[in-house]
Design a protein around this nucleic acid. Structure first.
Length: 552
RNA sequence: UGCCCGAUGGUGUAACUGGCAACACGCUUGAUUUUGAUUCAAGAAAGUCCAGGUUCGAGCCCUGGUCGGGCAACCA
């Protein structure tokens, strides 16, 4: 296990910092805003931040960036905490940017006192005009020259609730002609007479992200503040505040966010899917949210493995969803109990099997592990098999049932199809087969080798269950390249519900159980289940070489 | 027409910091298999965005281009 995996660029930076003695231990943080549910992109960040701290013996804080009371809710805080834990990580401290409101306020006062910030009465439109453009310098606000004394008084009044929302802001006094737009006198504080999910009505002025994030890192003595690429231009401001405030110098590093084929990671757009009912909530199994993939049956192990495999770099990427599916299958193959479930039943009557007789057949639960764990399946004269496991006129390499052809019933007997019945519409309604009594699974003395093995259930004991089959939510590979509205590209067939027939053992399923329905895919029990009706989500299909063969 | 990032098989990520491009997914073929799954084996696939330069030697360094992404919210 001592294989040396090459380091990503952040690990290189950290190892250099540790080796040089710059730090003796590292501190990272995962800083979500509680305004939505976490998704796979966040999983990448979580695995990175917590992974780095674990690897180098440091710590990771969970810090909620809750500086905008109008979009943030406790519901989100709870879901985020649950998701991080589910993924398998433990934070050192649970913190909130709102914990630092008093200190952040003092930081603003300090900047004002140093003549490095001022209160501006400009409207947002006026400020936008003052900003200039990336190619043209901005212009100074007419309020830029207010005295320190006046600014202090005004800011105190802002805090005291004297002014209405939007009437005034505090801005840093930097350079309206700066090539970095973010350095053109950015807003530090704005007035919002809004109820905050944690501080209630204690404040009516709230810091902007830029004035809260870096300082929060600094307060927590975060050594390596890791964020995504879009914050690269913010780093200059981040460093400016640290320098002017003379506080602990956390360093910001940026990596490329996760993009995946056939999906999107924008919290805003995911919220839209929820609000506009394209999906059934944040935890809809079609969503790339952690609560969604969890409900879908993805395991934390699989997601961590996935995050490990995609790597960390700075170039834009579009990860093929098949890699995630590979990780999920790999894990589920090892841990899922096997069950037989017939989706589209075709009745089989075994004509030489005694009427009224049943026997119990043993079948392995975990064929990948030598646990010896087995279950018993009732076998009898009338069975259901998959309709597609019979063909009246089979193609060349079809080795399932066909007139005169033999097949092995998994964990049962070898049967031979003697004849088939059709209804008036020409639809096959029943197969009449004979079985080889000496071919019983585990004590086969028939000497006959058949290529095809199919799953089955005893008709009389079959348990109807609901399965929900999911397909990709969007039918466009690169959602990021879209020119038009993403809602125009929703896959109308992303969810298909049907009633299928399971072996009786299915009744013992418990929530959280993962199964492989033989030859049909991986499934998990959905919370919508009731004792009267079990509901299963298809996590992912099995790889299917035959489907490819058929396409040829 | 500004500033900041980035560029290696189809997709990702590597290349011991200058020594004849590797790993994974995907794809193809074969073997095994009481899941057409799993497992195993083999194979196709990039000459590293382009053009110069330095060097015995460049994916790594230098110069100039090209292309892609980001930046003008009282969002984060």
């Amino acid at each position: 296990m001592a294989e040396e995996k090459s380091l990503n660029f952040l690990e290189e930076i950290i190892e250099r910092d540790l080796k040089s003695g710059k730090y003796t231990t590292i501190a990272t943080r995962f800083p979500p805003e509680p305004n939505g549910y976490l998704h796979l992109g966040h999983a990448k960040s979580i695995c990175l931040n917590f992974g780095l701290a674990n690897k180098y013996g440091g710590k990771t804080n969970l810090r909620f960036d809750d500086t905008n009371p109008v979009t943030e809710e406790t519901e989100y805080v709870e879901s985020i905490k649950g998701d991080v834990k589910w993924l398998g990580f433990e934070w050192s401290e649970e913190l909130y940017a709102s914990d630092y409101f008093p200190q952040l306020y003092e930081f603003a006062v300090k900047l004002i006192s140093k003549g490095l910030a001022y209160v501006d009465d400009s409207t947002s439109d006026e400020m936008a005009a003052q900003k200039g453009t990336p190619t043209q310098p901005g212009t100074n606000s007419p309020y830029r020259q207010r005295t320190i004394h006046e600014n202090l008084k005004l800011f105190a009044d802002m805090k005291a609730g004297v002014y209405p929302d939007g009437s005034k802001v505090v801005r840093a006094k930097i350079d309206m002609a700066h090539t970095n737009m973010l350095m053109r006198d950015p807003v530090l504080y704005r007035i919002k007479h809004a109820h905050h999910h944690r501080t209630g009505d204690a404040w009516c002025v709230y810091p902007m992200y830029d004035f809260a994030h870096g300082q929060s890192d600094s307060i927590e003595k975060i050594t390596h503040s890791i964020c995504t690429l879009e914050f690269v231009p913010h780093r200059e401001l981040y460093d400016w505040f640290i320098e002017k405030l003379e506080i602990y110098p956390s360093k910001q590093y940026e990596f490329a966010r996760l993009n995946m084929t056939y999906t999107m990671m924008s919290k805003r757009k995911l919220l839209q899917l929820v609000n506009e009912k394209f999906v059934n909530g944040w935890d809809d199994p079609r969503m790339p949210t952690l609560s969604g993939v969890r409900r879908r049956g993805y395991t934390p192990e699989a997601i961590r493995d996935f995050c490990d495999r995609i790597g960390i770099a700075k170039r834009d990427n579009l990860i093929d969803i098949s890699l995630l599916e590979f990780c999920v299958r790999e894990h589920l193959n090892k841990v899922s109990a096997r069950r037989m479930v017939v989706f589209d039943p075709l009745k089989v009557v075994i004509t030489n099997y005694p009427e009224g007789k049943t026997e119990l057949m043993k079948s392995e639960n975990y064929p990948e592990n030598a646990t010896g764990s087995v279950r018993e399946m009732p076998f009898g004269r009338e069975l259901f098999i998959e309709r597609e496991d019979f063909m009246e006129v089979p193609p060349k390499k079809y080795f399932r049932l066909a007139p005169g052809q033999m097949v092995r019933l998994k964990s049962g007997y070898i049967i031979k199809c003697d004849e088939f019945l059709k209804d008036a519409q020409g639809r096959v309604t029943e197969l009449r087969c004979t079985y080889l009594p000496e071919s019983r699974s585990g004590s086969d003395t028939s000497g006959i080798q058949v290529k095809g093995v199919i799953h089955w259930v005893l008709a009389e004991k079959a348990v109807p269950i609901e399965v929900r089959l999911y397909d990709r939510l969007f039918n466009v590979e690169d959602m990021g390249a879209l020119e038009d509205d993403f809602r125009n590209h929703i896959n109308p067939n992303s969810l298909q519900v049907s009633i299928v027939y399971a072996e009786p053992e299915i009744l013992n399923s418990k929530s959280g159980d993962h199964f492989q329905f033989l030859r049909m895919g991986y499934f998990c029990l959905d919370p919508d289940s009731t004792p009267a009706k079990l509901v299963f989500n298809r996590t992912v299909t099995l790889r299917d070489m035959w489907a490819k063969e058929v396409k040829k």
